[in-house]
Amino acid sequence: MSVTPLLEIKNLHVEFKVYGGVLKVLDGVDFRVNVGEKVGLVGETGCGKTTTMKAILRILPVPPARITGGEVLFKGRDILKMKERELRETRGRGISMIFQDPTAALNPVFTIGAQLEPVIRHASPENRRLSKKELRKLAVIPLKEVALADPERLLDAYPIQLSGGMRQRVCIGMALATNPELLIADEPGTSLDVTIQDQVLRLLQRLVEQRHSSVILISHTLGIVRQMCDRVYVMYAGNMVEEAPTRKLFANPLHPYTRGLMAAVPRLSGGGVAMGIPGRIPSYLHPPSGCRFHPRCPQAMEICKHEKPAFQQAEDDHRVACFLYDPAVAEPQKEATTA
């Protein structure tokens, strides 16, 4: 790992102060994106995917949120310590984001043009001196790129006049208009129909491949991540539980949670529906001690209740946070059972 990663999150802790206590949401998250890489982040509702991404852009509502520890290094500089001016440069030109719900991401009372033009204006120092006419000409380009018909007319349209798929295309165009080095796509197809989602994802894939941008794709659908990403992180209850290259992860999932999740997905080839994972996602107010997955884990051991497993290598590029793969713990256990 001599190459500096584009983005590196180290041991990030985020808490939310609420009535009744403190929600310990992110509990030591490690995450890395290399230049030109497409990284997937999978997990169920409430596991902390979006919180992690919002922490990267520093758009978490503070308070109630509080970052209690860790670093978010973008090209070696800690975003959490940046001054407002530097942060503004990083957002947009460095990192931009596509949100789950394009209807909520676009302001309903401004036209597409009125929302897109400021983005273009701030995309580069030269653009700041452009006239309105020139700006409008430039604003057509991102809309053309996302395969929207009649882009000139669209600039004068309000979001309500577009379909969900078109709105998400506008958001993608807007996010890529600044040529960001890193694009965060937070469930970009979830609010769309499956045939439209497929179109949007293929478009996104084509555009980022053209630009060699790095991408973080957040999803709760394993299939989407498999289709799009080079490397995948699996998250559960505020912890990273597994990380591997996509092919490896799907061929040989190690963590009991990842295995349960994959078994729970109904297959197109039939074979019935598995029972899923017993129990429910724990409350962040009183998270389980030790490994946060142990109350639902079919292979839980005594140590899992007391100690938190480290996120460490099980194979060369396959990391997992589970004592089953910790030689110091797993070997004596095996011996004990055989004896």
Partner: peptide
Amino acid sequence: DVSVQGKVINLLI
């Protein structure tokens, strides 16, 4: 969530 879906579907079956 998909991990909960299985329980509901199997109950229905």
